[in-house]
Amino acid sequence: MELDLINIGEIQLNSTQYNNSSAGVLGKATIVYEGKNYIVKSGMFSKPIFTTLEPVIECICSELIQLFKINCANYDLVKCTVQGNELWKTQESIVCISENFLGENEIIIHADNILNTKNTRTSYKHLTEVFKNNVIDINNMLIIDYIINNTDRHHKNFAMIYNSENNSLKFAPLYDHGFSLGQEMDIDYLESESDDFSEVYTESDYSKCCGVSNSSQIANIDYHSVKIDVDIEEIYKIIDKYKCYLKPATYEFMKYIIKRRLSYVKRVFTKGEGCYTRNNNI
């Protein structure tokens, strides 16, 4: 899919169209294209350009999560023209775009409104008490976040969908994974450690949902239904599709993270009837 023009520069200056849940880190906007509603996200603005890393990671994670058989927003890369202003010059850029997953009579209710807390994190116990009918969805989300090393699962980055026609609630598809797979690691640091990523790997383990690290979050989980019995080569094929957009050290670190994380989850959880359960012998 390719749009002729998405004028992110003008959208960012128009408060009636521009919206952002990440304190100005990523530009977000809604557009209508061929009668459908889409959400558009740029990469980070690093003077004088927009980076492509976050949109690329969003697309990689979208494909990976679908490979793991978990419902998520589907993202595509799109070329666009960003009109210049006093901050940046007119430039060709790459953004990611996702069709709005809300149906008729549906609204999204972000977790921060449901949890009723202003804290960045909450406990796993509180999280599963509040979402008591969706514990499997919470567990799946945290397992996914561990595997892809998502560092930005704050409480606006997951949600429920309310349908006013039948007065029902369901867990929303997972979305917003641009800060995953080591995105936050400095490229010079990655390149200097490319012979052995173990130290970088330890430093990159950070989360926002219900623990200070993705590792600490999954320590609470006894069961999930993420399809983890996938071959690592299938995962590498997805990452390889986007290799041309990635620095070599970033590309190698992504593969390092996901291989190590997936191997660990496979050791810790054993496949049972309908779900994977924790192997308490490990």
Rank of each mutant, 00 (worst) to 15 (best):
Y256W: 06
K259W: 02
H224E: 10
V212R: 12
V268R: 09
S204K: 04
D205E: 12
D222C: 11
Y245D: 03
S215I: 06
K208T: 15
H224I: 12
S263D: 15
I228N: 07
A249R: 03
D231G: 02
Y223K: 13
D222L: 13
I235Y: 08
E203W: 10
R260W: 04
S263H: 06
Y223D: 07
T250V: 08
Y264S: 01
K247M: 04
D231C: 09
I221P: 09
R261V: 02
C209A: 12
T270F: 05
S263F: 08
T270G: 01
I218P: 10
K237V: 02
I232E: 15
V212L: 11
Y251L: 04
D229G: 03
K208E: 15
Y201E: 08
I228V: 15
I235P: 04
T202C: 05
K271P: 04
E203K: 10
F253E: 05
R261I: 01
D222K: 14
P248S: 09
Y206E: 09
Y245W: 04
D222F: 12
T270K: 13
F269P: 04
E233N: 09
K227D: 14
K259T: 13
I257P: 04
A249I: 04
S225L: 10
I221D: 04
V212Y: 13
V265I: 12
C210V: 10
C244D: 07
Y256P: 04
Y201I: 08
N220M: 02
A219E: 15
V212H: 09
C210D: 11
H224T: 08
I258C: 01
N220Q: 08
Y236P: 00
R267T: 05
K237L: 06
I218S: 13
E203A: 09
Y242V: 11
I232A: 11
Y251P: 01
Y245Q: 02
D205Y: 06
E203P: 00
L246Y: 09
Y206M: 05
V268A: 06
F269D: 07
I238G: 04
Q217N: 15
Y201F: 15
L246E: 13
E203L: 09
Y236F: 14
